[in-house]
Amino acid sequence: MRAGTVVLPHPAGTHCAFLMDEGRSVSVRAWNEAAGLYDILDNPLGPAVVAQDGTSAFRIDGEALTQAAWDAHPRVRAARQGDLSGYPRPNWTPPG
Rank of each mutant, 00 (worst) to 15 (best):
M1K: 02
M1W: 01
M1Q: 06
M1T: 01
M1P: 02
M1R: 01
R2A: 08
R2D: 10
A3C: 09
G4P: 01
T5C: 07
T5N: 06
V6W: 02
V6D: 01
V7P: 01
P9E: 10
P9L: 10
H10T: 03
H10Q: 07
H10F: 06
P11S: 12
P11H: 11
A12V: 15
A12H: 14
T14K: 13
H15R: 01
H15G: 00
C16Q: 12
C16H: 11
C16M: 15
C16A: 14
A17K: 04
A17G: 13
A17V: 04
F18A: 03
F18D: 03
F18W: 08
L19C: 09
L19V: 05
D21P: 00
D21L: 02
D21F: 00
E22S: 13
G23H: 03
R24S: 08
R24E: 14
R24G: 03
R24H: 09
R24T: 06
V26S: 01
V26N: 01
S27R: 02
S27G: 12
R29P: 02
A30Q: 07
N32Q: 12
N32A: 13
E33H: 13
E33Q: 13
E33C: 06
E33L: 14
A34I: 10
A34T: 15
G36S: 12
Y38P: 02
Y38W: 12
Y38V: 04
D39L: 08
D39K: 06
D39H: 08
D39P: 07
D39W: 03
I40F: 07
I40Y: 07
L41P: 00
D42E: 08
D42N: 09
N43A: 04
N43F: 02
L45M: 13
G46Q: 07
P47Y: 00
P47S: 13
P47A: 12
P47D: 02
A48R: 00
A48Q: 00
V49Q: 00
V49I: 12
A51V: 01
A51S: 15
D53P: 03
T55G: 14
S56L: 00
A57D: 06
F58K: 00
R59K: 10
R59M: 03
I60V: 15
D61V: 10
E63F: 02
L65N: 07
T66A: 04
Q67M: 09
Q67T: 08
A68T: 05
A68E: 11
A68D: 14
A69K: 09
A69Y: 00
A69W: 01
W70F: 03
A72H: 09
A72I: 13
H73L: 12
P74W: 06
P74R: 09
P74V: 08
V76E: 06
V76K: 04
V76W: 03
R77M: 12
A78G: 14
A78Q: 11
A79Y: 08
Q81I: 12
D83H: 09
D83M: 14
L84M: 15
L84Q: 12
S85A: 15
G86W: 05
G86S: 11
Y87Q: 01
Y87C: 04
P88S: 14
P88A: 13
P90S: 11
P90R: 10
P90K: 07
N91M: 08
N91H: 11
W92G: 08
W92D: 06
T93F: 05
T93Q: 15
T93K: 14
P94C: 10
P94T: 05
P94F: 06
P94M: 11
P94G: 08
P95L: 15
G96F: 11
